[in-house]
Computed example of a mutant assay.
Amino acid sequence: MVATVGTLLIWLGVTQLSTALWGPEMSLPKHVTNAVGTFALAVPLVLAMCRYLDRRAISSLGLTGGKQAFRDVLYGALTWLIPAAIGMTAGLSFGWLEVRIESSVAEIVGAVLLLVVLVFTYEAFSEELIFRGYIYRNLTTVATPWIAVVVQALLFSTFGTALWVINNGWGVLFERSILFFGMAIVAGCVRLIAGSIWASIGFHLAFQVIMQLFLGSHYANIHVSNESIFILTTAVVAFCAATTIAGMLWREAPNWTKPDSALAETRPRRTTS
């Protein structure tokens, strides 16, 4: 709970600062300010809590390195992109949805690359490190992994919904609480199945980049005929199918039912002078 409250305070402080600097409407300078501010404050906080408060190695958060990290990010992104692409294709084929792209190929590529950097910095890495990294990993020491997935999802939903309600009013309460809880459950399951936080980072990254590319108006000139149908055929379909795709990509049987007693062994030893 302390980590959740601390995270909320960081996000609120940074977003209030960016609003004071750039105004209430989202813009590139505001997005950059949010991304840099939250990353610079949240990531060191989590790493410090892990290393000095819990006295555990940073690797206990599921932060592998090298080729495995790259593979897990890619696979995590595919758990969202594959079902979302299938759902969107069905929506377009049956005439439920129309998408008009008025930007050039170069502009689309540039927008995607920019969004990958901003989303990774502002949302995917920082939020995953906190909720599917630090909080989830601590929960698995005292609870079964599936319970840890549910609890971290409740905390993430509380964090995300509170942030939206404070900034946008109570009208978004139901919609955002359901969205954040569902997304966090799926991301937590992907993280559990993969055994790596990079997998949920990839899932989160793909989800947010596509949503902001198609439904935002700041980075590319793309028009969607019906936003609700677009969300249904992409995000909702992906949320429903992501864990199945994850099970096909990571073949080792995941541990759903046993607390991770081995995590205590990752505590670094104290040295004496």
Score class of each variant (00 low, 15 high):
198 W>P: 00
113 L>T: 10
22 W>I: 05
120 F>R: 00
18 S>Q: 11
181 F>M: 05
86 I>Y: 03
81 L>W: 03
49 M>Q: 11
98 E>H: 10
268 P>Y: 15
65 G>V: 11
24 P>W: 15
137 R>E: 15
86 I>R: 00
144 T>P: 06
194 A>Y: 09
99 V>P: 02
222 I>W: 06
266 T>Y: 14
192 L>R: 04
143 A>K: 12
82 I>N: 00
76 G>T: 05
109 V>C: 01
240 C>L: 14
36 V>T: 04
223 H>D: 08
66 G>V: 12
227 E>K: 10
257 T>M: 07
119 V>L: 05
162 A>C: 12
184 A>P: 05
195 G>W: 12
66 G>A: 06
240 C>I: 10
36 V>G: 01
171 G>Q: 04
241 A>C: 12
166 I>K: 05
83 P>Y: 06
255 N>E: 11
7 T>R: 03
266 T>N: 05
16 Q>W: 14
68 Q>Y: 06
248 M>F: 07
206 A>F: 06
259 P>V: 10
49 M>S: 10
258 K>T: 15
125 F>E: 07
262 A>K: 13
152 Q>Y: 10
213 L>G: 03
228 S>L: 10
184 A>W: 10
34 N>H: 04
64 T>V: 14
250 W>R: 01
213 L>V: 08
191 R>S: 15
101 I>A: 02
176 R>H: 09
242 A>Y: 03
199 A>R: 01
37 G>P: 05
62 G>Q: 13
35 A>L: 02
257 T>A: 10
115 L>C: 11
214 F>V: 05
261 S>H: 12
142 V>W: 13
115 L>W: 13
185 I>Q: 04
128 E>H: 07
176 R>W: 08
230 F>C: 09
146 W>G: 02
29 P>I: 03
8 L>Y: 13
201 I>W: 11
44 P>F: 09
77 A>F: 12
272 T>I: 14
77 A>P: 06
194 A>N: 03
238 A>N: 01
226 N>H: 12
74 L>T: 15
247 G>R: 05
51 R>Q: 10
51 R>M: 08
24 P>L: 13
237 V>N: 00
170 W>V: 13
174 F>M: 06
191 R>G: 13
14 V>Y: 07
76 G>H: 06
210 I>H: 09
140 T>Q: 12
65 G>A: 13
227 E>Q: 12
153 A>L: 07
74 L>F: 15
30 K>C: 11
28 L>N: 02
32 V>Q: 04
168 N>L: 09
144 T>Y: 09
116 V>F: 14
161 T>M: 07
193 I>E: 02
